[in-house]
Amino acid sequence: MTERDDLAPEDAFALVGDETRARIIRVLNEERDGKGAPPVLSFSELYDRFDEVGSSQFNYHLQKLVGHFVERTEDGYRVRPEGMALYRTLRGGTFRRLESTAPIDVGLNCYCCGAAVTATYEDGVLTVQCPDCDHLYLTSTRIPSRSVDDEEALLSRLDQFDRHKLLAFNRGVCPTCAHAIESRFVPAAEAPFPHTEERDLYLHRSCERCGNVDYVSVGKSLLEHPAVVSFLREHGTDPRERFQWEFEFAMTDRFTTVRSRDPWTVAIELTRDGETLELIVDEEGSVRERTRSTG
């Protein structure tokens, strides 16, 4: 088996800057066809796909990939996990210019000013925001979508994708590289996007390995918490079947109280049908106490 070599990120991208090398990775991935383990192709089987390239030139480019994106075995060559990740990124359209939509009415009046909240999908980024007061409800990382004809389906997919990332962050894992993340509370004024008086603070999560960052309200960070899900279900609402922005406690800090700042202790209350659920969150965003009361 090929011994893996470590590369600086810029060197790794430079390796696949050549058209022949990028095509080798594509061919090895497409031979797998998304099923089972990556197949091994002999040199001749692989080279047969490159009739227009000289044998020595092809071998030069192939060997440049070996140890980084391609693995050499006794029987031939197969794509490495790094090569599969690169192929998925390229095939998914991450580096292409994508479709955009006109503003989409999400069926919600802004919790801050009452205006109709809209969603826009611009070059792969979904933003749900009030056009009048700029209160931000959701913004995604760049997510390629091949079809924006069905606006409801687009919103549903990207909402669920955002929840997937949220769940990983909540469990202390970076959704990009699986490294451990660090969490801390920061005042809303320190967040790198517009905020309104309905935002007091954010839970900031960051990954030192890949640089991934997340700013989330206390309420949104708890939207998938078992105690919250159970409480809402008991009162007739399944949060997993509705958009995130339909829950005011997740989109504003009206139900959040800062108990202390050194260390941080934050309380949030949800009330339904005369019953209240209170959660106490520590400085790392973890629930330390929970109580339910009536009246």
Rank of each mutant, 00 (worst) to 15 (best):
D162S: 05
C207R: 04
R209G: 05
P187K: 11
V228G: 03
H204Q: 08
E190V: 04
Y215V: 03
L158A: 09
E182K: 13
T196P: 11
L203G: 04
H179S: 14
S221Q: 02
E224H: 06
L158Y: 04
E197L: 14
G211Y: 13
G172Q: 12
H225R: 07
E197S: 15
Q160F: 06
A180G: 03
A180T: 11
L167T: 09
Y202C: 02
S206W: 02
N212Y: 01
V186S: 12
F185T: 01
V228T: 10
Y215P: 00
C174Q: 00
A168Q: 11
L158G: 03
A189W: 12
V173D: 00
A188M: 08
L201S: 10
Y215N: 04
S183E: 14
C177A: 07
D162F: 04
V218M: 08
F161W: 04
F161G: 04
I181Q: 01
N170M: 08
N212K: 02
D159M: 10
C207E: 06
R171S: 10
R171D: 13
L166G: 12
Y202W: 14
S217T: 10
A168D: 14
P175I: 12
S221K: 06
R205A: 02
S230H: 14
F161Q: 02
E208L: 09
S221F: 06
E182M: 12
V173C: 10
C177T: 09
E198T: 14
H204W: 03
Y215F: 12
L223V: 08
C210P: 07
A188Q: 09
L158V: 00
P192G: 05
G211L: 01
R163T: 01
T176R: 15
F185E: 01
P194K: 13
R163G: 07
K220V: 09
E198Q: 15
P175C: 12
K220L: 06
R209Y: 13
E182S: 14
K165I: 02
D162W: 01
E197R: 15
H164V: 08
S217E: 07
E197T: 15
D159C: 04
L166V: 07
A188Y: 09
L167D: 02
L222Y: 11
P226T: 08
R199P: 02
L222S: 06
V218P: 05
E197M: 11
R199I: 15
E198Y: 14
S183H: 05
L201P: 08
P192W: 00
V186N: 01
V218G: 05
L223C: 11
C177V: 00
R184A: 13
S230M: 12
A191Y: 01
